[in-house]
Design a binder for these strands. Structure first.
Lengths: 223, 223
DNA sequence: GCAAAAGTGTTCCAGATACACCCATGA
DNA sequence: TCATGGGTGTATCTGGAACACTTTTGC
């Protein structure tokens, strides 16, 4: 491979779509932009990826700096999504963005400019971040359909109702309680514990645990 | 976003996994490397992506130059796969590679160093191209399972046996003829034509056509 | 008439869907 | 005792899997 003119690489950036489910609502982490371009709009956490740094390492550094979220400890599932590279997506010049999706729970953000938004009431978004979020949501739905990735949204021990709520929040539709329980239990991904959860004036719920906290493909797809 | 040291982007490259099905065998296009590193090994068609060029445009230019394959006219389906960025994957330095998968049929290559290989008898591969091909194959199987993407491997009119052979080549296993036909026809992706195909001393086969040559998701997954 | 691929139906089983009531608790 | 969410079973339907013979042609 020979080149006559000196090679100049495009700018490389990383962007993260960080999801959590709170009170039965799927949320995305966004940052309010303090500078141009798109000052005042909301954007995914992201930044530059320099030579010698993997995209994963860049993501780690950037989310830590900008949102105090640590992708290795705060997120229980992280996956590369897609690389967006339309030449005109950034008004400052050609930038190629490697995007990631991450899932966690009870994520606390200190920065006053960082905030979680419900997936179905997003504010004005910078760049092409609206389509990146839509892409991530589609992928997330697919992942929950054929893997055990829900574990990333749940505490170690959880009730079947919490589990069902999480699926409903991601899928954006309601599921039948009896069918949900029958099907999910038949997948043999979780087991009962001897603990129960008391929460108000009603029968306490059994707590369950995942057999494995590692990503596994389901024997049959969920949906 | 301010930087104290001047920003240097990693080298950006693109690599293509180009599939076709010939005589019931799934094949991948490879190039024999004439230079170091990995001189003599086989590699995916790929090359540098400079600033101002989209990855798709770079792919177009590179496959045309190196293998005389035109991804817009010779391939009927193209999709971005994944971005590989392990710092040490290229011995010459940190390179980030955006990979694509493409599918076509009857692709002719002029270059004597370019050749199609059966997916299950690949030669010595350069870089991490073995794992890229494996990743592409997995994705291809998934795509054929939940979309009508097979059309990319077939001529405009084709027999049900050709269709079944193509699935078998990609999936790497045999399918039951009666169940295959019943199921595929029930998906309503193809329609009969009034033409038949004569080919040797046996009953001629009806020719079918896809209703649409655009990618569609199946109402129920295939496999 | 024979070799070769095309074409065709039925039975069985597993899993999806639809659906309504009793249980255990706190106030 | 009542309000609240937890927990449970059955009937029906649809789609997947297994399986073998007849048809049409060229030689």
């Amino acid at each position: 491979m020979q080149y006559n003119s000196p090679y100049v690489a495009p700018t490389l950036t990383v962007d993260a779509v960080i999801f959590q489910v709170t009170d039965g609502v799927l949320q995305v982490l966004l940052l309010n932009r303090q500078n141009e371009p798109f000052k005042g709009s909301w954007a995914l956490p992201g930044g530059y990826n320099a030579q010698g740094e993997t995209t994963h390492a860049a993501l780690q550094r950037i989310t830590q700096q900008k949102t105090s979220v640590n992708i290795d400890t705060d997120l229980r599932y992280v996956e590369q999504l897609y690389t967006f590279d339309t030449v005109d997506r950034d008004p400052r010049g050609h930038a190629v963005s490697v995007t990631y999706m991450g899932c966690g729970r009870d994520i606390s953000v200190n920065d006053p400019h960082a905030q979680f938004f419900a997936i179905d009431s997003l504010p004005n978004l910078a760049y092409d971040h609206g389509s990146i979020i839509a892409y991530a949501h589609d992928r997330l739905i697919a992942k929950l359909n054929y893997t055990n990735a829900v574990y990333a949204f749940l505490p170690k021990r959880f009730t079947l109702s919490q589990l069902q709520n999480t699926y409903e929040a991601v899928f954006g539709r309601e599921l039948d309680k009896r069918n949900f329980r029958k099907k999910f239990l038949s997948l043999e991904l979780i087991h009962e514990t001897d603990e129960t959860w008391r929460d108000g004036a009603h029968r306490p719920a059994k707590l369950y645990e995942f057999n494995s906290q590692k990503l596994e493909s389901l024997s049959r797809s969920f949906d």
